[in-house]
């Protein structure tokens, strides 16, 4: 494709360990399967991690720094813990990957994305939150990892 692959390859080299998201994507691009999702790409180990540190290590092979340049949009109180709207956006340059983590869920990593060049660092999704929790947004920019977090209160509904 273009520059994204080489960027990913560099990330793989620096990450070293197998299972890094960057490595998986590099393979995706090389396989060039048109419009078909490839199950082999799935970072199974990262999705089985029970802490933020372990999940990020498995996914990116590195640890994040705090950043004020990530907008994490979550409700203060979730209307329904099963469907919590979450938006994340970042003004950081050259964003190649993003991820959302929920620290109190049984498995910490909720979702991760690999962005092609030209794809904006702005996405919106819905997560299940098992209980009141810190939600963490992680952004990979110019090969470095950044994070921000916010609390979401999950309460019980009264209307059955």
């Amino acid at each position: 494709m273009n520059g994204s692959i080489s960027a990913s390859r560099r990330a793989v080299l620096s990450a070293g360990a197998a299972g890094a998201l960057s490595a998986l994507i590099a393979r995706a691009a090389e396989a060039a399967a048109p419009a078909a999702a490839d199950a082999k790409l799935y970072p199974t180990a990262a999705f089985g991690a029970k802490t933020e540190v372990a999940a990020l290590k498995l996914l990116f092979g590195k640890a994040p720094k705090a950043s004020s340049k990530i907008d994490l949009g979550v409700p203060e109180i979730a209307e329904n813990g099963a469907v919590v709207p979450v938006t994340m956006a970042s003004g950081l340059p050259n964003v190649t990957a993003m991820a959302l983590l929920s620290l109190e869920n049984p498995y910490t990593l909720a979702c991760a994305y690999r962005l092609a060049p030209g794809t904006l660092a702005h996405m919106s999704s819905r997560l299940k939150l098992a209980k009141t929790t810190k939600v963490v947004a992680v952004v990979e920019s110019n090969g470095a990892l950044y994070r921000t977090s916010r609390m979401v209160k999950v309460t019980l509904g009264g209307c059955g």
Partner: peptide
């Protein structure tokens, strides 16, 4: 051409 690849866990609604 791929623009985005998403990896979802069971925490996606």
């Amino acid at each position: 051409k791929t623009v985005l690849t998403g990896f979802w866990g069971p925490a996606v609604s």
